[in-house]
């Protein structure tokens, strides 16, 4: 049976007074004290696990490891990217859609929303005429590294901005409008978008 020890009689008033306020000498509920002691124990264990010892993995180490792995994957991907692979990617609807999204967020500003090029800014990309190489890997490298023309950078080096995966996707998007073997190299002065008034 639970005892009725605190019923009926008034609790004792503590002798101290602060700002005219006095308090009864009462116990806190034990479950309440348990939450206090449990959080103290948790804080100690947390400190032990995260700061005093190396039991839990350091976030910085984990992030660095993940970044290294990502870079390794990208390097491996670049090594494996050859013309055949890029052609294959260009026939995959999902990759092409991804590439189109990238194009629509960045490339369009110079090459135009319809890919028809803009005079003085970007070449036309939706025809079979190419100035800086007519192979998928050449296009990939041009997007990735940019193009130097008469000692000045012209095309945009996008490796840092987009990363290998998205550059490959954009390449696939561009190739999706081409036929294998039908891409021709033309001199810069003949590029159609730069001829218009």
């Amino acid at each position: 049976m639970p005892d009725d020890d605190n019923l009926g009689e008034k609790p004792v008033i503590m002798p101290h007074t602060y700002d005219g306020i006095q308090e009864y000498d009462q116990s806190l509920p034990n479950w309440w004290l348990f939450t206090l002691f449990a959080s103290i124990a948790f804080a100690f264990l947390y400190w032990l696990a995260n700061f005093a010892t190396d039991t839990t993995p350091d976030d910085r180490v984990a992030v660095n490891a993940e970044m290294d792995a990502l870079e390794a994957r990208q390097l491996a991907a670049v090594k494996n990217l050859d013309d055949a692979t890029l052609w294959k990617m260009s026939r995959n609807a999902k990759t092409v859609a991804e590439g189109q999204a990238v194009y629509n967020s960045l490339c369009f500003t110079c090459h135009g929303p319809t890919m028809a090029g803009m005079k003085g800014l970007g070449f036309r990309l939706n025809d079979e005429f190419w100035v800086h190489g007519n192979t998928p890997t050449a296009i990939f490298n041009n997007i990735s590294e940019g193009i130097m023309f008469e000692g000045k950078p012209t095309g945009m080096a996008s490796q840092k901005v987009l990363g290998t995966g998205r550059i490959a996707a954009v390449t696939a998007f561009l190739l999706s409008m081409q036929k294998e073997g039908a891409m021709k190299v033309i001199p810069r002065k003949d590029e159609p978008s730069q001829l218009a008034p």
């Binding site: 009725d4 020890d5 019923l7 009926g8 609790p11 116990s27 509920p29 034990n30």
Partner: peptide
């Protein structure tokens, strides 16, 4: 008979902090 509850104490918490079930 159980004494009446009083205003100064919580009926469901005993003097030693134990829980009293109603």
């Amino acid at each position: 008979m159980r004494p009446d509850p009083i205003r100064e104490s919580v009926t469901t918490i005993g003097k030693d902090g134990t829980r009293r079930f109603l």
